[in-house]
């Protein structure tokens, strides 16, 4: 089997496998409920069953009618996101790969940092850093935008509407609490 064939069928097979696992998990609570004879498993089983049917249809149709997957495409459509995203990027360039990864990873690190150290301490670091990763190089611009946005957030969400924001854990929790008290 060629690698292109594997690539073609892999998503459908993955859907079937995941759905089968899902159905297996529903067996734990299969059976009627006192107030609902069909039970709690009925609705998810119908959905997961339908996913299996559509995935098998996808596999079979591309085997029998080789051009089906192409035939499914609607003619005259403008370029899809899929083409739009992948066509233009040269992943072989190291800097591009690094910047792309940073775009994804930095927000995740930000959330983790927010969980540990609190919103008020991590946000002033995240804002300028993300702008830098996104390509802003004028330090003055980074500084003023970060300060302005941070001040706006504090005023709007903390002082005005008392929105709950992550306060971190351990010593940072009380530090963030004191910071909150300062502005509320």
């Amino acid at each position: 089997m060629s690698s292109s064939t594997i690539k073609k069928f892999a998503p459908s097979v993955l859907w079937v496998l995941l759905s089968a696992v899902g159905i297996f998990l529903t067996l734990d609570y299969m059976g009627p409920l006192p107030t609902f004879k069909l039970g709690a498993a009925f609705w998810p089983q119908i959905i997961l069953g339908a996913i299996i049917v559509v995935s098998i249809f996808q596999i079979v149709s591309s085997l029998i009618f080789r051009d089906w997957s192409e035939g499914e495409r609607i003619e005259g459509l403008e370029k899809t996101d899929a083409q739009d995203i992948s066509d233009q990027v040269d992943y072989s360039v190291g800097a591009t790969r690094f910047k792309t990864l940073a775009t994804f990873i930095l927000p995740i690190v930000y959330v983790y940092g927010m969980h540990q150290f609190g919103f008020f301490f991590v946000t002033p670091i995240f804002l300028p850093l993300y702008m830098y990763v996104m390509g802003v190089r004028q330090l003055k611009k980074i500084f003023f935008v970060s300060v302005g946005l941070y001040a706006t957030i504090i005023f709007l969400f903390v002082s005005l509407v008392y929105t709950p924001l992550p306060q971190g854990s351990g010593a940072f929790h009380s530090l963030n609490g004191q910071f909150l008290a300062l502005f509320q």
Partner: peptide, 29 residues
């Protein structure tokens, strides 16, 4: 542009909606 991917997307959304307690008996799913 793909009918089967449209259906799979819809069914995936329906599946995400089943995560949590079921609306009748409160069984965790």
């Amino acid at each position: 542009g793909s009918l089967s991917k449209g259906w799979l997307s819809l069914l995936f959304g329906l599946f995400l909606g089943t995560i949590g307690l079921d609306p009748v008996g409160g069984t965790p799913r």
